[in-house]
């Protein structure tokens, strides 16, 4: 692996220094988790699972969703803006893909308070929102209300929340890894891959290797 340059094989050119985050007990960032989520997307493609959508720019997605939710609560015109404005199109299209049956599930990560990653999988077939928190906390109230508003707006149905199986973290740095792992195990129907909380550092190394392998697949 070179000391400088970009990581290849992912939708976004990320500086290679970001790989370092996987080599120790560090907090993971948007860029790093976007790469992990892209690997999950590639696994789904490889297995022909085209009924699950891994949201691209996954960690930015919920910020835009919350923006729309807060706006419609404070402005009469905001719902029209959400319905018509180009800059909400990618948010609208995602839920409409559930509503039309193009996808059965949407999966994405959410960052809470700029210090904690949780996972969300929305199933449009069962009208269920699966929420996985490696700390075992209840659904964040604002996120809960925003997701209920959004799913109801597009489908006309009331979605219920259920717990997404996820490994409980026993350290202060593995929530991002656990959140991605929970999504991967769920959408690929692979319960065997849930991380052993005592082996979180080994899992980071495994993720590092997967990203580097993907990098070299593209370079060669």
């Amino acid at each position: 692996v070179p000391w400088s340059g970009y990581i290849n094989g992912f939708p976004i050119h990320v500086d290679i220094s970001y790989l370092g985050g996987f080599l120790g007990p560090r907090w993971l960032s948007t860029e790093q988790l976007n790469m992990v989520m892209h690997l999950i997307h590639l696994e789904l493609v490889k297995k022909g699972c085209n009924d699950v959508k891994i949201i691209k720019e996954t960690t930015m997605f919920h910020q835009k969703l919350l923006e729309a939710y807060h706006a419609q609560r404070t402005s009469i015109d905001a719902l029209d803006t959400y319905t018509n404005a180009n800059h909400y199109r990618w948010i609208r299209d995602s839920c409409q893909a559930l509503q039309t049956g193009q996808y059965e599930q949407l999966a994405f990560l959410v960052n809470l308070n700029d210090n904690h990653w949780v996972s969300v999988v929305i199933n449009g077939h069962t009208d269920t929102i699966f929420y996985g928190d490696s700390l075992g906390s209840d659904v964040d109230p604002t996120l809960r209300d925003a997701l209920r508003w959004w799913t109801h707006l597009h489908t006309g149905r009331d979605f219920v929340f259920e717990e997404l199986p996820i490994t409980r973290q026993t350290d202060g740095h593995s929530c991002g890894l656990m959140a991605c792992n929970a999504i991967e195990a769920w959408v690929l129907h692979k319960p065997a891959i849930y991380i052993d909380p005592d082996c979180a550092l080994e899992e980071r190394l495994r993720m590092f290797v997967r990203i580097v392998q993907r990098h070299f697949e593209e370079v060669r």
Partner: peptide, 18 residues
């Protein structure tokens, strides 16, 4: 892009949870 289009700005986020 069209006239009056919007670009979203997002700040990179981190998490680990102490």
């Amino acid at each position: 892009m069209e006239d009056n289009d919007t670009i979203d700005v997002m700040v990179e986020q981190v998490g680990g949870c102490h």
